[in-house]
Protein backbone atom coordinates (compact mmCIF):
# COMPACT_ATOMS: atom_id res chain seq x y z
CA UNK A 1 0.00 0.00 0.00
CA UNK A 2 1.81 2.99 -1.17
CA UNK A 3 2.41 6.07 -3.21
CA UNK A 4 4.15 6.03 -6.56
CA UNK A 5 5.72 8.81 -8.59
CA UNK A 6 7.48 8.62 -11.93
CA UNK A 7 8.96 11.15 -14.29
CA UNK A 8 10.24 10.60 -17.81
CA UNK A 9 11.83 13.67 -19.38
CA UNK A 10 11.44 14.28 -23.08
CA UNK A 11 13.34 17.56 -23.00
CA UNK A 12 17.09 17.24 -22.56
CA UNK A 13 17.41 20.64 -20.89
CA UNK A 14 15.35 19.48 -17.90
CA UNK A 15 17.84 16.75 -16.94
CA UNK A 16 19.48 18.76 -14.16
CA UNK A 17 15.99 19.31 -12.67
CA UNK A 18 15.03 15.63 -12.48
CA UNK A 19 16.01 14.99 -8.87
CA UNK A 20 14.42 18.20 -7.68
CA UNK A 21 11.14 17.51 -9.45
CA UNK A 22 11.00 13.89 -8.29
CA UNK A 23 11.75 14.85 -4.70
CA UNK A 24 8.82 17.24 -4.57
CA UNK A 25 6.57 14.62 -6.12
CA UNK A 26 7.75 11.99 -3.64
CA UNK A 27 7.17 14.16 -0.58
CA UNK A 28 3.54 14.83 -1.56
CA UNK A 29 2.95 11.08 -1.35
CA UNK A 30 4.15 10.80 2.27
CA UNK A 31 0.65 10.10 3.64
CA UNK A 32 0.32 7.08 1.38
CA UNK A 33 3.57 5.59 2.60
CA UNK A 34 5.25 6.82 5.77
CA UNK A 35 7.34 3.68 6.45
CA UNK A 36 10.08 3.90 3.87
CA UNK A 37 10.93 5.59 0.61
CA UNK A 38 13.08 4.88 -2.38
CA UNK A 39 14.01 6.25 -5.72
CA UNK A 40 15.63 4.94 -8.90
CA UNK A 41 17.41 7.54 -10.97
CA UNK A 42 18.54 6.95 -14.52
CA UNK A 43 21.47 9.31 -14.72
CA UNK A 44 24.50 9.64 -16.90
CA UNK A 45 25.65 6.43 -18.46
CA UNK A 46 28.80 5.14 -16.87
CA UNK A 47 31.77 3.60 -18.57
CA UNK A 48 30.96 0.18 -17.27
CA UNK A 49 28.30 -0.76 -14.78
CA UNK A 50 27.09 1.14 -11.74
CA UNK A 51 26.46 -1.11 -8.75
CA UNK A 52 24.55 0.49 -5.86
CA UNK A 53 25.22 -1.19 -2.52
CA UNK A 54 23.87 -0.47 0.94
CA UNK A 55 25.23 -0.92 4.46
CA UNK A 56 23.81 -0.12 7.87
CA UNK A 57 27.35 0.70 8.99
CA UNK A 58 28.64 2.67 6.00
CA UNK A 59 31.53 4.37 7.77
CA UNK A 60 33.35 1.15 8.40
CA UNK A 61 32.08 -0.87 5.48
CA UNK A 62 32.66 1.71 2.74
CA UNK A 63 36.09 2.75 4.01
CA UNK A 64 38.50 1.37 1.44
CA UNK A 65 35.78 -0.64 -0.29
CA UNK A 66 36.80 0.58 -3.75
CA UNK A 67 40.40 -0.40 -3.21
CA UNK A 68 39.48 -3.82 -1.94
CA UNK A 69 37.16 -4.42 -4.89
CA UNK A 70 39.85 -3.24 -7.30
CA UNK A 71 42.24 -5.69 -5.77
CA UNK A 72 39.71 -8.51 -5.93
CA UNK A 73 38.76 -7.83 -9.54
CA UNK A 74 42.19 -6.75 -10.67
CA UNK A 75 40.41 -3.94 -12.54
CA UNK A 76 39.79 -0.24 -12.12
CA UNK A 77 36.84 0.71 -9.87
CA UNK A 78 35.45 4.08 -8.81
CA UNK A 79 33.17 4.76 -5.87
CA UNK A 80 30.72 7.46 -4.83
CA UNK A 81 29.46 7.22 -1.25
CA UNK A 82 26.04 8.67 -0.50
CA UNK A 83 25.01 8.15 3.12
CA UNK A 84 24.21 4.44 3.57
CA UNK A 85 24.64 3.74 -0.12
CA UNK A 86 27.71 3.55 -2.33
CA UNK A 87 27.68 3.54 -6.11
CA UNK A 88 30.62 1.61 -7.51
CA UNK A 89 31.49 1.74 -11.17
CA UNK A 90 32.86 -1.57 -12.34
CA UNK A 91 33.79 -3.06 -15.72
CA UNK A 92 30.85 -4.39 -17.77
CA UNK A 93 31.88 -8.02 -17.42
CA UNK A 94 32.62 -7.89 -13.69
CA UNK A 95 29.08 -7.93 -12.30
CA UNK A 96 29.05 -11.54 -11.09
CA UNK A 97 32.44 -11.25 -9.41
CA UNK A 98 31.50 -7.94 -7.82
CA UNK A 99 28.20 -9.38 -6.53
CA UNK A 100 30.07 -12.29 -4.96
CA UNK A 101 32.53 -9.85 -3.41
CA UNK A 102 29.71 -7.75 -1.92
CA UNK A 103 27.90 -10.80 -0.64
CA UNK A 104 31.02 -12.02 1.12
CA UNK A 105 31.31 -8.63 2.85
CA UNK A 106 27.64 -8.65 3.88
CA UNK A 107 26.79 -5.68 1.69
CA UNK A 108 23.39 -5.48 0.03
CA UNK A 109 23.25 -4.87 -3.70
CA UNK A 110 20.33 -2.54 -4.41
CA UNK A 111 20.68 -2.53 -8.15
CA UNK A 112 23.03 -2.69 -11.08
CA UNK A 113 22.95 -0.88 -14.40
CA UNK A 114 24.80 1.34 -16.79
CA UNK A 115 22.48 4.26 -15.99
CA UNK A 116 20.38 3.30 -12.95
CA UNK A 117 21.21 4.10 -9.34
CA UNK A 118 18.85 3.11 -6.52
CA UNK A 119 18.54 4.74 -3.11
CA UNK A 120 16.07 3.53 -0.51
CA UNK A 121 15.78 3.57 3.25
CA UNK A 122 13.36 3.40 6.16
CA UNK A 123 11.92 6.75 7.14
CA UNK A 124 9.82 9.59 5.88
CA UNK A 125 10.24 10.47 2.20
CA UNK A 126 11.56 13.96 2.95
CA UNK A 127 14.24 12.54 5.22
CA UNK A 128 15.19 9.79 2.83
CA UNK A 129 15.42 12.25 -0.08
CA UNK A 130 17.55 14.61 1.99
CA UNK A 131 19.93 11.88 3.16
CA UNK A 132 20.70 10.90 -0.39
CA UNK A 133 20.66 14.39 -1.87
CA UNK A 134 18.13 13.32 -4.46
CA UNK A 135 17.34 16.95 -5.28
CA UNK A 136 20.80 17.47 -6.71
CA UNK A 137 20.66 14.44 -8.99
CA UNK A 138 20.24 14.80 -12.71
CA UNK A 139 19.05 12.25 -15.20
CA UNK A 140 16.66 11.27 -17.94
CA UNK A 141 13.97 9.57 -15.88
CA UNK A 142 13.27 8.24 -12.43
CA UNK A 143 10.76 6.40 -10.29
CA UNK A 144 10.01 6.95 -6.64
CA UNK A 145 7.96 5.13 -4.05
CA UNK A 146 6.62 5.72 -0.54
CA UNK A 147 5.69 2.58 1.33
CA UNK A 148 2.98 1.68 3.84
CA UNK A 149 4.09 -1.87 4.57
CA UNK A 150 1.33 -4.48 4.47
CA UNK A 151 2.62 -7.96 5.23
CA UNK A 152 6.39 -7.86 4.88
CA UNK A 153 8.82 -6.17 7.20
CA UNK A 154 9.68 -2.49 7.27
CA UNK A 155 13.33 -2.82 6.28
CA UNK A 156 15.69 -1.26 3.80
CA UNK A 157 15.49 -4.33 1.60
CA UNK A 158 11.70 -4.30 1.83
CA UNK A 159 11.56 -0.75 0.47
CA UNK A 160 10.83 -0.12 -3.19
CA UNK A 161 12.05 0.15 -5.95
CA UNK A 162 13.04 -3.46 -6.45
CA UNK A 163 15.70 -4.17 -9.03
CA UNK A 164 16.12 -7.73 -10.22
CA UNK A 165 17.88 -7.12 -13.51
CA UNK A 166 20.39 -4.67 -14.93
CA UNK A 167 18.85 -1.21 -15.31
CA UNK A 168 15.44 -2.65 -14.38
CA UNK A 169 13.36 -1.51 -11.48
CA UNK A 170 9.77 -1.86 -10.38
CA UNK A 171 7.50 -0.19 -7.83
CA UNK A 172 4.02 -1.31 -6.83
CA UNK A 173 0.87 -0.07 -5.18
CA UNK A 174 -1.54 -2.81 -4.16
CA UNK A 175 -1.31 -6.30 -2.79
CA UNK A 176 -0.64 -9.51 -4.71
CA UNK A 177 -2.49 -12.67 -3.71
CA UNK A 178 -0.52 -15.36 -5.52
CA UNK A 179 3.01 -14.18 -4.82
CA UNK A 180 3.92 -17.19 -2.71
CA UNK A 181 3.10 -19.61 -5.48
CA UNK A 182 4.82 -17.39 -8.05
CA UNK A 183 7.87 -17.13 -5.78
CA UNK A 184 8.27 -20.92 -5.93
CA UNK A 185 7.92 -20.95 -9.72
CA UNK A 186 10.43 -18.13 -10.17
CA UNK A 187 12.89 -19.72 -7.76
CA UNK A 188 12.85 -22.88 -9.85
CA UNK A 189 13.55 -20.80 -12.92
CA UNK A 190 16.55 -19.19 -11.22
CA UNK A 191 14.95 -15.84 -10.44
CA UNK A 192 14.62 -16.24 -6.69
CA UNK A 193 13.34 -13.18 -4.81
CA UNK A 194 15.60 -12.17 -1.94
CA UNK A 195 12.89 -10.79 0.36
CA UNK A 196 9.40 -11.82 1.46
CA UNK A 197 7.94 -8.78 -0.29
CA UNK A 198 5.21 -9.43 -2.87
CA UNK A 199 6.51 -6.62 -5.04
CA UNK A 200 9.89 -8.23 -5.48
CA UNK A 201 8.11 -11.26 -6.91
CA UNK A 202 6.62 -9.02 -9.56
CA UNK A 203 10.06 -7.56 -10.31
CA UNK A 204 11.51 -11.05 -10.64
CA UNK A 205 8.64 -12.05 -12.86
CA UNK A 206 9.38 -9.18 -15.25
CA UNK A 207 13.11 -10.02 -15.21
CA UNK A 208 12.38 -13.67 -15.93
CA UNK A 209 10.18 -12.79 -18.88
CA UNK A 210 12.76 -10.39 -20.28
CA UNK A 211 15.41 -13.06 -19.91
CA UNK A 212 13.19 -15.44 -21.86
CA UNK A 213 13.20 -12.97 -24.74
CA UNK A 214 10.01 -11.03 -24.13
CA UNK A 215 10.13 -7.30 -24.63
CA UNK A 216 9.04 -5.09 -21.76
CA UNK A 217 5.55 -4.63 -23.21
CA UNK A 218 5.06 -8.39 -23.40
CA UNK A 219 6.42 -8.85 -19.89
CA UNK A 220 4.00 -6.26 -18.54
CA UNK A 221 1.14 -7.87 -20.46
CA UNK A 222 2.11 -11.12 -18.77
CA UNK A 223 1.50 -9.71 -15.33
CA UNK A 224 -2.19 -9.44 -16.22
CA UNK A 225 -2.42 -13.21 -16.74
CA UNK A 226 0.08 -14.49 -14.24
CA UNK A 227 -0.18 -12.22 -11.21
CA UNK A 228 -3.31 -12.25 -9.06
CA UNK A 229 -4.45 -9.48 -6.78
CA UNK A 230 -4.38 -5.73 -6.93
CA UNK A 231 -1.57 -3.81 -8.55
CA UNK A 232 -0.41 -0.70 -10.21
CA UNK A 233 3.16 -1.27 -11.42
CA UNK A 234 5.53 1.37 -12.68
CA UNK A 235 8.62 -0.13 -14.28
CA UNK A 236 11.85 1.56 -15.26
CA UNK A 237 14.37 0.48 -17.86
CA UNK A 238 17.47 2.08 -19.26
CA UNK A 239 15.53 3.79 -22.03
CA UNK A 240 12.08 4.28 -20.67
CA UNK A 241 9.34 3.50 -18.32
CA UNK A 242 6.09 1.56 -18.35
CA UNK A 243 2.84 1.42 -16.41
CA UNK A 244 0.25 -1.31 -15.98
CA UNK A 245 -2.78 -1.67 -13.70
CA UNK A 246 -4.65 -4.85 -12.89
CA UNK A 247 -8.05 -5.40 -14.53
CA UNK A 248 -10.00 -4.37 -11.42
CA UNK A 249 -7.87 -1.22 -11.15
CA UNK A 250 -9.07 0.17 -7.86
CA UNK A 251 -5.73 1.53 -6.72
CA UNK A 252 -5.33 5.11 -7.86
CA UNK A 253 -3.18 6.27 -10.75
CA UNK A 254 -2.96 9.48 -12.73
CA UNK A 255 -0.67 10.44 -15.59
CA UNK A 256 0.26 13.70 -17.28
CA UNK A 257 2.05 14.37 -20.53
CA UNK A 258 3.44 17.57 -21.99
CA UNK A 259 6.02 18.21 -24.70
CA UNK A 260 8.62 18.17 -21.92
CA UNK A 261 7.76 15.11 -19.87
CA UNK A 262 5.53 12.18 -18.99
CA UNK A 263 4.67 11.97 -15.30
CA UNK A 264 2.96 9.38 -13.12
CA UNK A 265 1.46 9.87 -9.67
CA UNK A 266 -0.74 7.83 -7.37
CA UNK A 267 -2.64 11.06 -6.85
CA UNK A 268 -2.88 14.32 -8.71
CA UNK A 269 -1.22 16.05 -5.75
CA UNK A 270 2.06 14.52 -6.88
CA UNK A 271 1.75 16.27 -10.23
CA UNK A 272 0.25 19.53 -9.05
CA UNK A 273 3.49 21.52 -9.01
CA UNK A 274 5.09 20.25 -12.21
CA UNK A 275 5.87 22.99 -14.74
CA UNK A 276 3.15 23.43 -17.32
CA UNK A 277 0.78 21.00 -15.58
CA UNK A 278 -2.17 23.32 -16.23
CA UNK A 279 -1.83 22.69 -19.96
CA UNK A 280 -0.78 19.03 -19.72
CA UNK A 281 -2.86 16.14 -20.97
CA UNK A 282 -3.91 14.47 -17.69
CA UNK A 283 -5.60 11.07 -17.65
CA UNK A 284 -6.04 7.87 -15.72
CA UNK A 285 -4.37 4.81 -17.16
CA UNK A 286 -6.96 2.24 -18.22
CA UNK A 287 -7.18 -1.11 -16.44
CA UNK A 288 -5.34 -4.05 -17.97
CA UNK A 289 -3.60 -1.74 -20.43
CA UNK A 290 0.14 -1.43 -20.83
CA UNK A 291 1.60 2.04 -21.29
CA UNK A 292 5.20 2.49 -22.29
CA UNK A 293 7.48 5.38 -23.14
CA UNK A 294 10.91 4.89 -24.61
CA UNK A 295 13.47 7.29 -25.91
Amino acid sequence: MCGIVGLFLKKEALRPQLGNMLTDMLITMTDRGPDSAGIAIYGDEAEGLKMTVQSDTPQTEFDGLDGALEAALGRKVTMKVVDTHAVLTIPDDAEDDARAFMKARGLRVMGVGSAMEIFKEIGLPKDVAARFGIRQMSGSHGIGHTRMATESAVTTMGAHPFSTGDDQCLVHNGSLSNHNQMRRVLTQKGFAPQTQNDTEVAACYISSRLAEGANLGEALEGTLDDLDGFFTFVVGTKNGFGVVRDPIACKPAVMAETEDYVAFGSEYRALANLPGIEAARVWEPEPATVYFWER
Binding site: G3, G33, S175, P252
Partner: peptide
Protein backbone atom coordinates in the same frame (compact mmCIF):
# COMPACT_ATOMS: atom_id res chain seq x y z
CA UNK B 1 -17.32 -6.94 0.13
CA UNK B 2 -15.25 -3.81 -0.50
CA UNK B 3 -16.12 -0.20 0.12
CA UNK B 4 -17.36 1.55 -3.01
CA UNK B 5 -14.98 4.49 -2.90
CA UNK B 6 -11.69 3.31 -1.46
CA UNK B 7 -9.52 0.18 -1.33
CA UNK B 8 -6.58 -0.44 1.00
CA UNK B 9 -5.11 1.39 3.98
CA UNK B 10 -3.50 4.18 1.96
CA UNK B 11 -6.92 5.15 0.60
CA UNK B 12 -8.54 4.54 3.98
CA UNK B 13 -6.34 7.22 5.50
CA UNK B 14 -7.93 9.72 3.12
Amino acid sequence: CRHPDWTGPDDLEI
